[in-house]
Simulated assay, not measured.
Amino acid sequence: MASLQGGAALAKSLFSEIGAEGVTALRIGFAAIFLCVIYRPWRRPLHLIVWRPILVYGTALGCMNLAFYMSLKTIPLGPAVAIEFSGPLAVAIFYSRRPADLIWLALAIFGLYLLLPFGQLSAGLDITGVLLALFAGVCWAVYIVAGKKAGDANGRMSVPLGSLVAAMFIFPIGLIHAGTGLFSLAILPTALLVGIFSSTLPYSLEMVALTKLPSKTFSTFMSLEPALGAVCGYLFLKEGLTTSQGIAVLCIIVSSIGITSAIGKDRS
């Protein structure tokens, strides 16, 4: 999570050079190359690959990253991560059958309300940035559901193939926006680090963590991601949070911990 959010902060530093579209293109492009080198998907015959879930998974992955980076143009990293986190939170609530989880849902909605640009307690965030972060959350929810189906059908090969699908339609968007600036030698080293820290390294570490930790523990740790986003935004981008933004991020974190802990109890 620290790698992922640190990579997002590093990516935002490139926005002035090639825009959010260009940064997204380079991140996904480099990640696809790295993941293909690691997993070597060409070893599996094409006729054995179930493509439909991979296409949905890859499309959701590309749209999620593009919308999230676009949101960072106008709102701080911490609130953007918290708003985007509504996606996996919604998936967890949808599959929950516990009436008590309505309390955690209400807490998450209250947190989102504090981040939306209306009301007396408004955090004053840009409406376009908020909507883009919400769309990224929707894409994250689709990514989770489609990723499970793709993984069940194709195993680990879903990761590099999904990344390739994302790169195929996101890279042209970045190229159209940034032009030849996308290949500037001055930004490529930083873009390379973004690809490593935002995709390759966290995905690899997650795979190791999932084999070492119980699902409940892993999910609870993941709930802290909005907090790490806020910390990275403050340390690397000098983005502070207002009181209402801090309370909102805390509400979403507590809501996620409550829901994932309840799911863990149901499965135990």
Rank of each mutant, 00 (worst) to 15 (best):
L213I: 06
M222I: 13
F221D: 10
W140L: 08
A90L: 11
A146M: 11
L228A: 09
V231D: 06
A178R: 08
F15D: 06
I49L: 01
A90F: 04
T180L: 15
I247T: 13
E21T: 11
G78D: 00
Y234E: 12
K265V: 08
G195L: 08
L210H: 04
L35E: 05
S199T: 14
L185Y: 11
S3P: 01
R43K: 05
V91S: 02
S158G: 11
A108Y: 01
A25W: 02
S219Q: 12
K148D: 15
E225F: 04
P79I: 05
E21D: 14
Y95L: 11
H177Q: 15
M70Q: 14
P202G: 08
S184M: 11
A32G: 06
S244T: 14
I93R: 04
Y143S: 10
A80T: 00
W140I: 12
Y57A: 07
S215T: 15
G78R: 00
Y57N: 10
S86E: 00
F85W: 01
F110P: 02
I196A: 11
A262P: 01
G124F: 11
P214W: 09
V145N: 12
T59A: 12
S244H: 13
I263F: 08
L175N: 13
I253D: 00
L26C: 04
G181F: 13
E84N: 06
P76Y: 02
A20V: 07
Y69Q: 09
